[in-house]
């Protein structure tokens, strides 16, 4: 008596193969749909905005007249913002991650902190904007300066950087730590010489992706009250400024048809900005990647 009857198995075979093919098709359709949406979006923006792209667009300040409107203040403003956000968030984030992974004792308090850092990564950016408004803009009287906006953005992306850095540090094999500590190295020497070099690709990739999120965020800047039309460049971190997403948001919400073109051109600039940052992340990952 055999339980598996070859005849029946063969008979059922066709049905199984058909189901397999159907699901393959469904999954492919899902991928194609996403790709299609992306392509349409890119196509519309590029065809719409390309005509307005020129050196003048990069060199002009914002204007009431669409043909004169430029993105200079926003572009430089976004660069200033990054100059504040990158060091603040990376130093704080990597420092916290090192503390949590290497120094902190495993107890209920640290488990609670870890859990909540992950939760913070999911808090809407508007909430961080309100926090920044209360603390940096008002309590610290920083006004709507680059520093206030930079600190707010740093808070926003800090959880992401901490979690990414923790993951990177945790993926360094325990054997390497043991080897270093077993030779009488201090924790700090082990962190600097062994753990950070091995974790740096992961840390940098995570940080750069978090920074590109900060570049594209609009809500916190609106809540803080960053102005849109600015006819000067900031000379320091205490000056006010405007940033790419805010500028684009303003142009896109104007009634005149011509400003839609200007907004599309702004989006192209923002996308190039993001593309450059993501490419840097990929390059770093490929360059430093080590296998164990």
């Amino acid at each position: 008596m055999r339980y598996v009857e070859q005849e029946k198995v063969i008979k059922r075979m066709n049905g199984r193969l058909v189901v397999n093919t159907i699901f393959k098709g469904l999954f492919m359709a899902a991928t194609l749909l996403a790709l299609l949406a992306l392509v349409v979006l890119l196509y519309r923006i590029i065809t719409q905005g390309a005509s307005h792209l020129s050196l003048d667009f990069l060199m002009n300040f914002a204007s009431r007249f669409p043909e004169k409107a430029g993105i200079k203040a926003a572009l430089i403003g976004s660069l200033w913002l990054m100059a504040v956000v990158a060091p603040t968030s990376i130093i704080l984030g990597v420092g916290s991650a090192i503390y949590l992974e290497e120094y902190a004792k495993q107890n209920k308090l640290t488990t609670f902190i870890r859990l909540n850092i992950s939760n913070l990564a999911g808090v809407p950016s508007v909430v961080f904007g309100l926090l920044g408004l209360t603390i940096f803009v008002r309590a610290f009287s920083l006004g709507n300066s680059i520093l206030a906006a930079g600190f707010t953005m740093s808070l926003l992306i800090l959880p992401v950087i901490i979690v990414a850095s923790q993951e990177a540090i945790r993926s360094v094999p325990k054997e390497l730590r043991d080897a270093s500590l077993g030779m009488g190295a201090t924790k700090w020497q082990t962190v600097v010489n062994i753990i950070l070099p091995a974790a740096i690709p992961g840390i940098l990739t995570g940080s750069i992706l978090a920074l590109s999120r900060a570049i594209g965020e609009t809500a916190p800047l609106i809540v803080i009250g960053i102005p849109v039309i600015i006819q000067f460049l900031p000379r320091g971190v205490f000056d006010t400024f405007t940033a790419l997403p805010i500028q684009i948001f303003d142009w896109a919400s104007r009634p005149q048809q011509e400003f839609q073109v200007v907004a599309a051109a702004g989006i192209i600039i923002l996308m190039i900005f993001l593309l450059i940052m993501n490419s840097i992340a990929v390059i770093i990952r490929n360059k430093f990647q080590k296998r164990y």
């Binding site: 054997e175 030779m183 190295a185 070099p197 091995a198």
Partner: peptide, 25 residues
Amino acid sequence: GMVFQKPNPFPKSIYDNIAYGPRIH
């Protein structure tokens, strides 16, 4: 000194592996 169950050299050059201990001291 300690030698572990699984060989665990650092992902560094042979020279830097050996010089690691003296250097940290």
